[in-house]
Simulated assay, not measured.
Amino acid sequence: MIHSRRSFLIGVPIVAAATVVATSTSAIAAPSHQSPIAIRSRSAVDDPELPELVIDYPDHVDLHVHYVRHDMDNPAGCTIRGPEETIQADVPAGTAAVRIAGVRYELLQFHFHTRSEHVLDGHHYSLEQHYVHRGPHGQTLVIALFLTHGGRGGTPQDAVLHTLPQECGNDRDIAVNLEKSLPGDLSTFRYDGSLTTAPYTEGVSWLILRRHHAVTDASVNGFEKLFPKGNARKLQPLNNRTVRYRRQR
């Protein structure tokens, strides 16, 4: 098997979704590598050789915050709350990125789910924030951050969640200190998965931050009120994938 350079960025060899194993009578599809998954920290492989996650987020960035509807062309969609809808903050091109093993991944946008899509040691968090990045060859890398109650406010997340755009309502433009949106502890669980919304494309590099981030009760409650039935995809089988852990404090 030939591995691309990206296949080692998270420590998990990536196999194309269309790969098949030929037999004398049929072709057997490769196991599905879908997200989200349940992560057990004791089962994760501790791998200090994984490349460091380097954050290059600015202390000032202008965000375009809007409600994402699943069926944008259907006027009736304004009265139907779909499970794949969310609040999304678009980031201007070239303003924020992360680097792994010298490769730069541009931050395109971030959005939120409730409850958390991933589960850590059997625990669902109130919210999960996804930072979606694009690599130089079109690769997708997502950093996931768990959000909890009890914060004192003033975080970039609170700025976005404080006054949420309503479905089919007006968008918002706000400036935030994106540099402060992540915890100081950048230890991550890493695995190869997929998008969690249609078309569920595989080959996505997932980095799940172990340390959660606290936002105000009002921020959590407001998002939960907007999505009373939640907007998280159900857990997917691991299918023999290895979750690796990279400590970085």
Results as ranks from 00 to 15, higher is better:
residue 2 I to Q: 12
residue 3 H to K: 15
residue 3 H to Y: 08
residue 3 H to A: 15
residue 5 R to Y: 06
residue 5 R to N: 13
residue 14 I to H: 09
residue 17 A to E: 11
residue 17 A to W: 09
residue 18 A to K: 15
residue 20 V to M: 11
residue 21 V to I: 14
residue 21 V to G: 13
residue 26 S to F: 03
residue 30 A to G: 10
residue 33 H to Q: 10
residue 35 S to W: 02
residue 36 P to K: 04
residue 37 I to A: 02
residue 38 A to N: 11
residue 42 R to K: 13
residue 45 V to D: 02
residue 49 E to T: 15
residue 50 L to Q: 02
residue 52 E to D: 14
residue 57 Y to R: 05
residue 64 H to N: 15
residue 65 V to E: 04
residue 65 V to C: 04
residue 66 H to T: 02
residue 66 H to M: 03
residue 67 Y to A: 09
residue 71 D to H: 15
residue 74 N to E: 11
residue 74 N to Q: 13
residue 75 P to K: 11
residue 79 T to A: 11
residue 79 T to C: 14
residue 81 R to T: 12
residue 81 R to A: 00
residue 82 G to C: 01
residue 83 P to K: 07
residue 83 P to T: 01
residue 86 T to R: 02
residue 88 Q to S: 09
residue 92 P to H: 13
residue 95 T to N: 09
residue 96 A to G: 00
residue 97 A to K: 04
residue 97 A to P: 01
residue 99 R to C: 01
residue 106 E to P: 05
residue 106 E to I: 01
residue 106 E to Q: 10
residue 107 L to F: 09
residue 107 L to R: 02
residue 107 L to V: 06
residue 108 L to R: 15
residue 109 Q to W: 13
residue 109 Q to C: 08
residue 113 H to N: 08
residue 113 H to L: 05
residue 114 T to A: 08
residue 115 R to H: 09
residue 119 V to M: 11
residue 119 V to Q: 08
residue 121 D to F: 14
residue 124 H to T: 03
residue 124 H to R: 11
residue 125 Y to S: 00
residue 125 Y to C: 02
residue 126 S to F: 00
residue 126 S to Q: 13
residue 130 H to W: 04
residue 131 Y to R: 12
residue 131 Y to P: 03
residue 137 H to G: 12
residue 138 G to C: 09
residue 139 Q to D: 14
residue 139 Q to W: 10
residue 140 T to F: 10
residue 141 L to P: 01
residue 145 L to Q: 03
residue 146 F to V: 00
residue 147 L to Q: 01
residue 148 T to C: 10
residue 149 H to L: 09
residue 150 G to I: 12
residue 153 G to R: 02
residue 158 D to T: 02
residue 159 A to R: 03
residue 162 H to K: 07
residue 165 P to Q: 03
residue 168 C to I: 06
residue 168 C to Y: 08
residue 170 N to Y: 07
residue 173 D to P: 06
residue 173 D to A: 13
residue 174 I to S: 06
residue 176 V to M: 06
residue 177 N to E: 05
residue 178 L to A: 01
residue 178 L to V: 01
residue 180 K to Y: 06
residue 180 K to N: 15
residue 182 L to P: 05
residue 183 P to N: 01
residue 184 G to S: 15
residue 184 G to A: 14
residue 191 Y to N: 00
residue 197 T to H: 14
residue 198 A to L: 12
residue 198 A to Y: 10
residue 200 Y to F: 12
residue 201 T to P: 09
residue 203 G to Y: 05
residue 204 V to P: 00
residue 204 V to E: 05
residue 206 W to R: 03
residue 206 W to G: 02
residue 212 H to N: 10
residue 213 H to V: 04
residue 214 A to E: 08
residue 216 T to Q: 09
residue 218 A to I: 11
residue 218 A to H: 04
residue 220 V to L: 02
residue 220 V to N: 07
residue 221 N to Y: 06
residue 224 E to L: 14
residue 225 K to S: 15
residue 225 K to Y: 09
residue 227 F to W: 05
residue 230 G to H: 10
residue 230 G to V: 11
residue 231 N to T: 07
residue 238 L to Q: 04
residue 239 N to G: 03
residue 245 Y to L: 12
residue 246 R to C: 05
residue 246 R to P: 06
residue 247 R to I: 13
